[in-house]
Amino acid sequence: MNHTAQHAAHHTAHAVRRLAVAEARLFLREPLTAFFGLAFPVVLFLVLGSVPALRKTSPGMHGMSTIQLYAPILAVFTLLLLGLNGLPSLLAAYRERGVLRRMSASPVRPALLFGALLPLYLAVAVVSVLLVVVAGPLLGVALPRQPLGFLLAFLLAAAALLSIGLLLAAVVPSAKAGNAVGALAFFPMMFFSGIWLPREFMPALLNRIGDFTPSGAAVQTLQDAWAGHFPHAVGLLTLAAYAVLAGAAAARLFRWE
């Protein structure tokens, strides 16, 4: 790397850092989003876990308790919230207001904004998952027994759901549409994550369909890793495929103005 290129790379890194700091402040200034993204999963986890019946293991659920089933679902919740509610409405609003256009008039590419937002959202999701994981032992939910598999599944789930968020942000025409489309995708994905009816209780066909949805695959792979198995390759590949396809489509379709 020659001197100029080194300088440019250093400058880009500096710009991304400042962007990430600014976006982090803006994220925290939305108290509702910040609460739901960071704390809601662990709060719901503790509330559900305080019900003794939900902590009881049952042979019908392969010797697991209901709260054990909920742990990976709540780990995925923040990713769904950020990917489907957060990114599309945020980026569509930025486009509508001309924030992206203003940035594109500066020396940096507006794509650097992704370089700031995605790590930020990933960090928020990591915090929320860590809170659920460390709260687990209080409720009789052990730490994930297959940490490497857990990490891999979580990163792939994050890549898949945030890429889908980017794709939605790329195609929605306005901030209003961003909210609507985000919500439209959010509820079925919530359903397949099992938040209302854990996947174990779903009819076999629905469960099978769920395996190939981003949220279903995310919950299943995390659950496997939690229980100590390395996640099934089909689940991991499903997540990877969503990440690559949605990411590539978003990159092709994204409009800055």
Binding site: H11, A22, G98, V99, S106, P107
Partner: peptide, 24 residues
């Protein structure tokens, strides 16, 4: 630019500091 806005909750000082970081 004639028509552009910044992030709504971004403060004036923060906006200037941020854009300063985008220039060499």
């Amino acid at each position: 630019l004639q028509q552009a806005q910044l992030q709504g909750a971004l403060r004036v000082g923060e906006a200037l500091e941020l854009y300063a970081a985008l220039y060499p």
